[in-house]
Design a protein around this nucleic acid. Sequence first.
DNA 1: GGTGAAAAGTTAGCTTT
DNA 2: AAAGCTAACTTTTCACC
Lengths: 156, 156
Amino acid sequence: MSSEVQLDTIDRAILKELQKDGRLANQDLAQRVHLSPSACLRRVKRLEESGVIAQYVALINPKAVGKQGTSYTIINLERMTTAALDAFEAAVLASPDILDCFYVAGSNDYMIRFAYKDAEDLERFHTQVLMQLPEVARSNSMLVLRTIKKSTAFPL
Amino acid sequence: MSSEVQLDTIDRAILKELQKDGRLANQDLAQRVHLSPSACLRRVKRLEESGVIAQYVALINPKAVGKQGTSYTIINLERMTTAALDAFEAAVLASPDILDCFYVAGSNDYMIRFAYKDAEDLERFHTQVLMQLPEVARSNSMLVLRTIKKSTAFPL
DNA sequence: GGTGAAAAGTTAGCTTT
DNA sequence: AAAGCTAACTTTTCACC
């Protein structure tokens, strides 16, 4: 549906601004893209309704909610049967600690992302969450030591 | 700074709502957390100024801007000297195609994330971007085939 | 796509608990 | 010290050009 929407230069300018500041007032946005507020609002609504803009969110500082770090973990399943995948995925969906989970190409792996409070919490995650997931053969954690770049926005 | 801010139950309720809808009107937010608009606004401003809320952003549908898929790539450098890391990181920062880059624990690796338009664009990325990065010894790409879960929000 | 006016939302000073 | 009240101000929204 939204994959077929044609975007012009102004639409892209709007998306660029809104990806930087999702709370930008329509009046200010209109000024930045050289449009009247009403014309600008019509475009924004169209972008929202067509699903080009999926969601507006507040990004919060992980440290402020006690999350000291993030880890990416690559997971290999024991069996690649539908039942095994389903069981694994259901467990992932049920775990609030797991923030992201992707089925990735390569050697039939999953990759998950989670945030931890401290070393103790990280250990808890490994023993209480990771090791409890069904069908896991191997897992390889990559703790984030430093962030060079992090973006929620796409280049336009 | 923001790591020391004490959050009470109402603050957490506010963050929970704003992580789901960053454009929620203050009046509506106030109602959901059972506060008057002015009291609610004071708390939101405090959360913003203390850096607990880092940013508001619009999340856009990758397909709508022509991005068919995402890939995570693990990168091993040839040498782990400061100069090598600096050269690599400078090149990463200069590449608009690379959305995220983390220095991760394990075998002295980096992990990067990028989005591609189609198979051709993916190949372009590998030959024009990945292979041009300095100091790269090995890289291992994990194409996202399916997303089981994806979240920008932290559980509160 | 722009204009203008009504409706809705924001915000700050002051009072109350 | 933090919440509520009120009222001025700003922004959104929409019928109409």
